[in-house]
Amino acid sequence: MGLSQSQKDLVGGSVGGVAQVLVGQPFDIVKVRIQTAAPGTFASPLECASTLLKNEGPMGFYKGTLTPLLGIGACVSIQFGALEWSKRFFSERNGGKELGLPELYASGAIGGLANTVVAGPVEHIRIRLQTQPANAKLYSGPLDCAAQLIKSNGLPGLFKGQVPTMFRDGIGYGCYFAAYEWLVQRHIRENGGSRADISPLYAVGYGAAAGYFLWGSIYPIDVVKSKLQTDALNPSQRKYRGMLDCFAQTWRAQGWRGFTGGLTPTLVRSPFANGATFVAFEMAMRAMGGPGGAPDIPVPDAIV
């Protein structure tokens, strides 16, 4: 028995997510290292990348990769399920008419919030692995990291930084879906045709642009989340009491610049990650006998 269209969408989305992680991981680890380092540690993203390469070798750029690879399927499934449920809910309320941007924003936000159930602990583990020193290995892998987090702080230890993660994903994915849909609707109004007629090149471009909207709307929150998730596990040794305290301390120490560390590799990463996601999604869908052409809404530049 063949796969249903929903199952094909989930498989295609998961394949796209894996490609996104593999292409985007080197940029992401540079972003996280800059976000969590003491002010003045790196003069530029290039210096951070050069230091990482020198001290940890090429595979240093893929530290913590296994965690998002294992979690991407669950994240995509939850996000797609919540997104589609929300779109149906709003469609029923407005009599089946095409959803407007506010409804698309709300649907994306709901999908993003639902996604954090898995994305929060997955990203916490990944960041712990990405920032552990090469000469003082603290964790042998994702499972060992999870076990140590639970041992030191119980199950809530896995969800450290969950509040900013929820703010980030709710706001960010709302902006992503609304921006992508606005660009697609504008393209159709100006060029005619339907979604299926939009070339893959335009779809990749719109996905990349929507990714910039995503990161532009939530980057300071992402910085705070990274700082909280690399803070000491022992409550008596923690630097920050919570999200608001982290915001306040970062502002006092560095001003607005404290919320932009690692932004450059993030913006450079976005078109490459979205391009890889789209190509992998298309190849997977065609291999399963699915329809070609641009997907209604491609898998976004995943935060996980």
Score class of each variant (00 low, 15 high):
Leu233His: 05
Pro26Ser: 07
Gln132Lys: 06
Gly112Trp: 00
Arg252Gly: 06
Gly71Tyr: 02
Tyr206Pro: 04
Pro39Ala: 11
Phe42Val: 08
Ser50Gln: 15
Phe90Gln: 03
Cys246Lys: 06
Gly100His: 10
Lys63Asn: 11
Asn115Gly: 00
Pro271Asp: 03
Asp296Ile: 10
Pro295Met: 11
Leu155Lys: 01
Ala19Arg: 00
Ile218Thr: 11
Trp182Gln: 09
Lys151Arg: 15
Ala49Ile: 08
Ala294Pro: 04
Ser14Tyr: 08
Leu201Cys: 01
Asn274Ser: 12
Thr67Ser: 12
Met283Gln: 14
Arg195Met: 12
Ser91Pro: 03
Pro298Phe: 05
Ala114Met: 05
Thr65Gly: 02
Gly24Phe: 03
Gln25Ser: 10
Gly112Ser: 02
Arg126Ala: 15
Ser14Leu: 04
Ile125Ala: 07
Gln229Thr: 15
Trp182Ser: 14
Trp182Tyr: 14
Gln7Ser: 09
Val76Met: 06
Arg252Tyr: 07
Gly100Trp: 07
Glu190Thr: 12
Ala280Asp: 07
Gly207Val: 03
Ile110Cys: 00
Met288Arg: 02
Ile150His: 08
Gln148Pro: 02
Ile297Glu: 02
Gly81Trp: 00
Val163Ser: 09
Ser194Leu: 05
Phe213Gly: 05
Ile171Tyr: 07
Ala43Ile: 06
Met285Gly: 03
Pro200His: 11
Gly275Arg: 04
Thr131Ala: 12
Ile127Gly: 01
Pro45Phe: 06
Leu3Ser: 06
